Simulated scan of single mutants.
Amino acid sequence: MTVSDEDRAAVAAQLGRAPRGMRAVAARCPSGHPAVVQTSPRLEDGTPFPTLYYLTCSRLNSYVSRLEGAGLMKEMTDRLAADEQLAERYRRAHEVYLAERDAIEPLGTTVTAGGMPDRVKCLHVHVAHSLAAGRGVNPFGDEALDLLAQWWPSGECASKVKN
Rank of each mutant, 00 (worst) to 15 (best):
Y53T: 01
A128N: 13
P106S: 07
V137F: 06
R135G: 15
A128G: 11
L123T: 02
D78G: 08
L86D: 01
T110K: 06
Y53M: 03
L123F: 03
L86Y: 09
L60Y: 01
Y54A: 05
A82Y: 14
F140E: 14
M76S: 04
L52A: 03
Y97L: 09
A81L: 15
R92S: 14
K121V: 11
D83K: 04
A81P: 12
V111Y: 09
Y90H: 10
R59S: 04
V64N: 00
G71I: 11
L107T: 06
S62M: 15
A82E: 15
R135M: 03
A128L: 05
E88K: 07
A81G: 15
L72Y: 13
E84M: 13
R92I: 05
R119H: 08
R79Y: 10
P139F: 11
T56G: 00
H124L: 15
C57I: 10
T110N: 10
H126F: 14
A132Y: 09
V111E: 10
R101P: 01
L55T: 06
G114V: 01
L98D: 02
M76Q: 08
A128V: 02
H94Y: 13
E68W: 10
V111S: 09
C57G: 00
T110C: 07
A81V: 15
G69Q: 03
C122S: 12
C122N: 06
T112N: 08
R89C: 02
T112F: 00
P139N: 07
E105T: 06
A82W: 11
H94P: 14
T109M: 09
L67Y: 06
L52M: 05
A99P: 01
E95W: 03
S130C: 08
Q85D: 12
K121P: 04
F140L: 15
Y63G: 04
R119D: 02
G69M: 03
P117Q: 13
A113N: 01
A132I: 06
Y90D: 01
R91G: 12
E105L: 04
E105V: 00
A93C: 08
R92V: 12
D78E: 13
G114K: 01
L131C: 04
Y97A: 09
G134P: 07
G115N: 07
T77L: 08
E100G: 03
V120H: 00
L80S: 00
R91H: 06
L107V: 03
G114Y: 00
R66K: 09
M116D: 00
T110Q: 13
I104P: 03
Y90Q: 03
L107Q: 02
P139K: 15
A132K: 02
A99I: 02
R66E: 14
V127C: 13
S130N: 09
L72I: 13
G136W: 10
S65P: 02
L98N: 02
V111C: 11
E84W: 05
H94F: 06
N138W: 02
D118S: 09
R119S: 03
Y97F: 11
Q85I: 10
A87V: 10
H129M: 07
F140P: 02
K74N: 09
T110A: 10
